[in-house]
C-alpha cells in the first residue's frame, strides 16, 4: 500500500543575504514525510536544520524549490491561508513552551480552537479533555507560572493537538527539560502519534528522541547527510549508548 505523504519538499534551497555575502543555508533538499510518521531532524547548529524545520512548518519560504504541506504549495498561500494552515494543519511545540502567560492552561489550549471558530463551550470541553489526556486534568485553571516546565510542555502538547492537526512540529521540545521530564514528554508525543495518527516532526539534539523515531534525518551543511530508518536505528542507538556509557 502506498503511504500518504503529508509533507514533501522538492529541491529546496534557501539563501540568506548577510550584508554583502550570500549564505546558502539549504542546498537542495528533497524529502517526503509520510502521514503518521515520527521523524526527527538532527544536525549540528548551523547545519540548516532550523531553516529546513521552519520551511516544513510553513514558517519560512524557500528561495527556490517547492514545499508541499498536505499537497498544498506553501509558496502560493497568502497571509490568510497561511494563518489557516498554521491553525488547522500544524501544531507547534517550542523549546521554551511559549504558553500565553496571562491565560490559564485551559484557555491556552482553547486559543487555537477559538481561532478556528469553535464556540467557547465546545472549545472548553475539548480543551479539558485534551488536558485530561496529557495528565493535567487537575490543573485546568493553573496559570503557566504555577506549573513546572514539564507540566507547561504538556499543556503545549495539548494545545498543539487542539485542532486535530495533521502535523505536530516540535522544536527541541526537551531542550529546557531535565532527563526524566524530557523522556516523559517524548513518550507523550509518541502516545499522541500512535493514538491519533498525527505526524510528528521534531528538530532535536536529544538522543532519547531516537528510540521513538520512525526515521531520523541527519542534516549537514545544508544537505541531507543520511536518513536512517527505525530498524537500522536500533543498532545505531545501541552503539551510541555503548559509547557514551
Amino acid at each position: 500500500m502506498a503511504r500518504q505523504t503529508v509533507v514533501r519538499t522538492e529541491d529546496v534551497r534557501k539563501v540568506y543575504q548577510m550584508g554583502a555575502v550570500e549564505v546558502e543555508a539549504l542546498k537542495g533538499i528533497t524529502l517526503e514525510v509520510y502521514a503518521g510518521e515520527y521523524i526527527s531532524i538532527m544536525g549540528p547548529s548551523g547545519s540548516g536544520k532550523t531553516t529546513l524545520f521552519n520551511m516544513i512548518g510553513g514558517l519560512d519560504k524557500p528561495t527556490s524549490g517547492r514545499v508541499y504541506i498536505d499537497e498544498v504549495d506553501v509558496a502560493q498561500l497568502d497571509a490568510y491561508e497561511l494563518a489557516w494552515l498554521r491553525c488547522r494543519k500544524i501544531g507547534y511545540i517550542f523549546q521554551t513552551f511559549n504558553l500565553i502567560p496571562v491565560m490559564s492552561a485551559l484557555e491556552n489550549v482553547m486559543l487555537p480552537m477559538i481561532f478556528a471558530r469553535m464556540t467557547s463551550d465546545d472549545a472548553r470541553e475539548k480543551a479539558a479533555a485534551l488536558l485530561e489526556r496529557v495528565g493535567l486534568g487537575d490543573r485546568l485553571l493553573h496559570k503557566p507560572y504555577e506549573l513546572s516546565g514539564g507540566q507547561q510542555q504538556r499543556v503545549a502538547v495539548a494545545r498543539a493537538m487542539a485542532n486535530d492537526p495533521a502535523i505536530i512540529l516540535a522544536d527541541e521540545p526537551t531542550g529546557n527539560l531535565d532527563l526524566k521530564t524530557g523522556t516523559e514528554i517524548i513518550e507523550l508525543l509518541k502516545q499522541m502519534n500512535e493514538e491519533s495518527g498525527v505526524t510528528i516532526i521534531s528538530a532535536t539534539h536529544d538522543h532519547k528522541m531516537l528510540s521513538v523515531s520512525d526515521r531520523v534525518l541527519w542534516i549537514r551543511d545544508g544537505r541531507v547527510e543520511r536518513i536512517v530508518n527505525r530498524e537500522e536505528l536500533q543498532i545505531e542507538v545501541g552503539k551510541i549508548d555503548g559509547r557514551t556509557e
Binding site: 514558517l59 497571509a79 490568510y80 494563518a83 489557516w84 498554521r86 491553525c87 488547522r88 500544524i90 507547534y92 517550542f94 511559549n98 500565553i100 486559543l111 487555537p112 481561532f115 478556528a116 494545545r159
Partner: peptide
C-alpha cells in the same frame, strides 16, 4: 506563538 496558532 499567537501567529503560529493561527492569529491574523
Amino acid at each position: 506563538t499567537m501567529k503560529c496558532l493561527g492569529a491574523l
